[in-house]
Write a protein that binds this DNA or RNA. Structure first.
Lengths: 203, 203
DNA sequence: GTCTATAGCGGGATAGAC
DNA sequence: GTCTATCCCGCTATAGAC
């Protein structure tokens, strides 16, 4: 699965897009093939089945989440830096990989155990997320800021960052904006959010 | 479509559940029928087609959103009361109608215009949401609290409340909790959230 | 109004030519 | 490695008995 071949890449690229907007059962191999500009049979030649193709897209998505969004925060940073980096990390990742949220949320509602398994594999103790929580807890305690528990805090930050991307089509449609405008808005929102959150944590 | 009939209700109840967890194309009429304990042909007898059945479930869901989540805030309340009520409204509604978030999010990614249309119909100027934004803006200004623009503010509050319900299966699986425990957690979180947000708004 | 049987088709998958 | 043709299952939908 080295993806050196042009056709292979074209298929995966197309698969991501279609799976993202239509979900697993909503997409047809036909549609992926036509978007990738290859023959339907080629999909099976390269990836055996629809299931396997989806598996690859899903695993890849979880990989990005693990790599980009579960990454450990540096211990030496202060809370302000940590929050800014956390928000930055999320917004930039979701702008670069816009198909991530829908893909994962869809799979969570039909196969939560599967998503959990992929997210935790090679990492059975889920060390990075737990460490992140612990580090944040310590930072909160340092400043006597423990009005909120660290899991709640992470959940809140993730919610604020991910949810707007989930309802992006609604927002862009309502305000008649394009994707670039939406991205600009989300980027601008980063600094507003971090000052909002920091203020909430002040003792 | 008066839903006086037991069978009719059983079908709709089943349809909501299946459409929620599997999405439109992931659900089969067969599955709805067996969950409702009626014959497959009865679904067509009562609702003509899968499409029409889904339409009803979707419209009903949007109706709940309009009625419960777009409702106008009382002008005379202060910001603290408004925020508490907003959060309360969301959490209680999502606990009572757990299928709402997935259903809508799914449809947003495939048919954003359709969702917008249903949400705005009988309400073309989208007056309640706009009024809510305006009221909150005024309340923010009263207290000199305008660090955040009111649309951002609404988006943040909605994100914080809705997102956890979207990843509920992940949370309940990871922490090995049941739905009741999850609901208790979300209820407890209400007061934490409102003090968190209020703090963030302090000048 | 509820059942069984079946029509009809869309879509995943494969065979086999090139 | 890429194409066309085709198989075949599963699903929506309907006909028709009861």
């Amino acid at each position: 699965m080295s993806l050196t071949n042009e056709t292979e890449i074209a298929i995966i690229d197309a698969a991501r897009k279609v799976f993202n907007s239509k979900g697993y059962s909503g997409t047809t191999m036909e549609e992926i093939a036509s978007l990738a500009k290859v023959n339907k049979a080629s999909l099976h030649y390269y990836y055996r089945s629809k299931e396997k193709l989806f598996e690859i897209v899903l695993t890849e998505a979880c990989g990005i989440i693990k790599e980009k969004l579960f990454s450990i925060i540096k211990l030496e940073d202060n809370l302000e830096v940590i929050i800014k980096e956390l928000i930055d990390e999320y917004v930039e990742t979701l702008i670069n990989y816009p198909y991530l949220p829908n893909l994962i949320i869809n799979e969570i509602s039909s196969n939560p155990e599967k998503v959990l398994k992929i997210l935790l594999q090679d990492n059975p103790s889920n060390i990075t997320v737990l460490r992140r929580i612990v580090i944040i807890r310590n930072k909160l305690l340092e400043g006597n800021k423990e009005v909120i528990n660290p899991f709640d805090f992470i959940l809140t930050v993730v919610s604020i960052n991910v949810f707007p991307f989930l309802i992006r089509p609604l927002i862009t449609n309502y305000f008649r904006m394009g994707d670039e405008q939406f991205n600009t808005y989300m980027k601008k929102r980063k600094s507003d959010l971090s000052s909002f959150i920091l203020k909430a944590l002040k003792p």
